[in-house]
């Protein structure tokens, strides 16, 4: 079994226009920037991106948004100004989701759980559907969020949330082996694990590709069964190359 690939454009060419993609990262920490860049190079369009942030710079998901490649964004913090303009111009749909619900919906997709109840958001506009999902080009709301079913557990209202299965996932790992076993570094694990679980096919850009066995069994954060394709990241690591506390 060898999941290592060498040509990022060839690897990602199987992603069709219109695909849904779960993308790891929180801000730029753990964001698979090289993979997002490759989707731009391949001129992929009409994408549904599921990620926490819509990018904080024209980088990663932010670049995909800026180049108008999104038909829909599902996430908790689309604070990117460019994305917000696109949303209000009616050029992209927004499904705004509380962050913990987002992570759990992604995890559930990979865990075989079609839906679950959570108290988060109950009674708010995000649960009652009183928040815009799409505008027209004149800035009128033409679609609202779907109202969520409510059920009371232990006296507490909870909302029904569905799994967020995606066609693909884009993930950034610190270490990967040819079997797709992954290890992340410090705070970069974040949405990479739920994203890999949500994607039917998961692409990984790895900072370091290591021999099988180099990641101790107890140190594998995501087993290779969730991963289909691994490629060496050329994005570099933007942080301090020798931070205190980095054990490897």
């Amino acid at each position: 079994m060898d999941k290592i690939r060498t040509d990022v454009l060839e690897m990602l060419s199987i992603v069709p226009d219109g695909a849904s993609l779960a993308v790891g990262g929180f801000g730029l920490t753990g964001a698979p920037i090289m993979l997002c860049d490759a989707l731009c190079e391949l001129d992929k369009r009409d994408l549904h991106i599921v990620a926490n942030n819509a990018g904080i710079d024209p980088t990663g998901v932010g670049r995909l948004a800026q180049e108008g490649r999104l038909r829909k964004f599902t996430g908790s913090f689309p604070s990117n100004k460019n994305f917000f303009s696109l949303f209000h111009e009616g050029r992209v749909e927004l499904e705004l989701v509380p962050q913990g619900t987002l992570a759990e919906r992604m995890r559930a997709a990979g865990a075989g759980i079609p839906a679950f109840y959570t108290p988060t958001g109950a009674g708010t506009d995000l649960a009652t559907g009183n928040y815009p999902a799409r505008y027209d080009s004149d800035g009128n709301v033409v679609q609202w969020l779907e109202p969520k079913d409510v059920r009371v557990f232990n006296g507490r209202p909870c909302v029904l949330e569905t799994a967020l299965a995606c066609d693909f996932a884009l993930v950034k790992a610190h270490r990967a082996d040819r079997l797709g076993n992954l290890a992340f570094r410090l705070g970069s694990r974040n949405f990479n694990v739920p994203a890999a679980m949500a994607g039917a096919v998961t692409f990984v850009e790895a900072q370091n590709i290591v021999e099988v066995g180099a990641i101790e069994p107890d140190a594998v954060h995501l087993p290779g069964v969730f991963v289909q394709h691994v490629i060496q990241s050329t994005g570099g690591w933007v942080g301090n190359p020798n931070p205190p506390g980095a054990s490897w």
């Binding site: 689309p78 705004l96 509380p98 962050q99 108290p119 995000l126 928040y131």
Partner: peptide, 14 residues
């Protein structure tokens, strides 16, 4: 304002 729900709804719940 750009909507930034982030983790706030989870935090006030939990």
């Amino acid at each position: 304002r750009t909507p930034g729900v982030g983790g706030a709804m989870d935090l006030v719940t939990g």
